[in-house]
Measured scan of single mutants.
Amino acid sequence: AQEYRALYDYTAQNPDELDLSAGDILEVILEGEDGWWTVERNGQRGFVPGSYLEKL
């Protein structure tokens, strides 16, 4: 798994998404072809927009 940093804040719109704060460090589990990536942070897993992340 790769570590990424959130570039922007994101507020989850659905229960299966995660909130992001700019600067958060996340582990990317799966890069979805639809642009939604499965990530894990502090034991929580959910979808976030891949375009909001940069690889560390």
Score class of each variant (00 low, 15 high):
Asp16His: 15
Asp24Glu: 12
Ile29Leu: 13
Leu18Ile: 10
Asn14Thr: 13
Tyr8Val: 08
Arg41His: 11
Gln44Asn: 09
Asp34Ile: 02
Ala22Val: 12
Glu17Tyr: 04
Lys55Tyr: 05
Asn42Ser: 13
Arg5Asp: 01
Ser21Cys: 15
Glu54Val: 06
Ser51Ala: 14
Tyr10Val: 00
Asp34Met: 05
Asp19Ala: 07
Ser21Val: 14
Pro49Val: 02
Leu30Met: 15
Tyr4Thr: 05
Glu17Ala: 03
Ile29Ser: 06
Asp19His: 07
Glu3Arg: 10
Lys55Asp: 06
Val48Asn: 00
Ile29Glu: 08
Leu7Gly: 03
Gly43Tyr: 04
Arg5Asn: 05
Glu33Lys: 13
Leu18Phe: 08
Ile25Thr: 09
Pro15Asn: 09
Thr11Pro: 04
Tyr10Lys: 02
Glu3Trp: 06
Glu40Ile: 13
Leu56Gln: 15
Glu27Ile: 15
Tyr4Gly: 07
Lys55Cys: 08
Tyr10Cys: 02
Pro15Tyr: 07
Leu7Ala: 06
Gln13Asn: 10
Gln2Leu: 12
Val48Thr: 03
Gln13Met: 11
Asp19Met: 06
Asp24Trp: 03
Phe47Thr: 11
Ile29Trp: 07
Val28Trp: 01
Gly32Thr: 09
Gly23Gln: 04
Gly43Gln: 08
Tyr10Gly: 01
Trp36Val: 14
Thr38Cys: 10
Glu54Trp: 04
Gly35Tyr: 06
Leu26Thr: 05
Asp16Asn: 15
Ala6Arg: 00
Leu7Gln: 09
Gly43Glu: 08
Leu26Lys: 00
Leu7Arg: 11
Gly35Ile: 02
Leu7Trp: 03
Trp37Asn: 04
Asp34Val: 03
Leu18Arg: 02
Lys55Glu: 12
Ala6Pro: 00
Tyr4Asn: 04
Asp16Lys: 15
Asp9Asn: 15
Trp36Asn: 12
Glu3Gln: 14
Ile29Thr: 09
Thr11Gly: 08
Asn42Cys: 10
Asp16Leu: 09
Val39Gly: 04
Gly43His: 07
Leu20Arg: 01
Arg5Ser: 06
Glu3Ile: 15
Ala1Met: 15
Leu18Met: 11
Asn14Glu: 09
Glu33Ala: 10
Asn14Trp: 11
Glu54Phe: 03
Glu31Tyr: 10
Gly32Gln: 10
Ile25Pro: 05
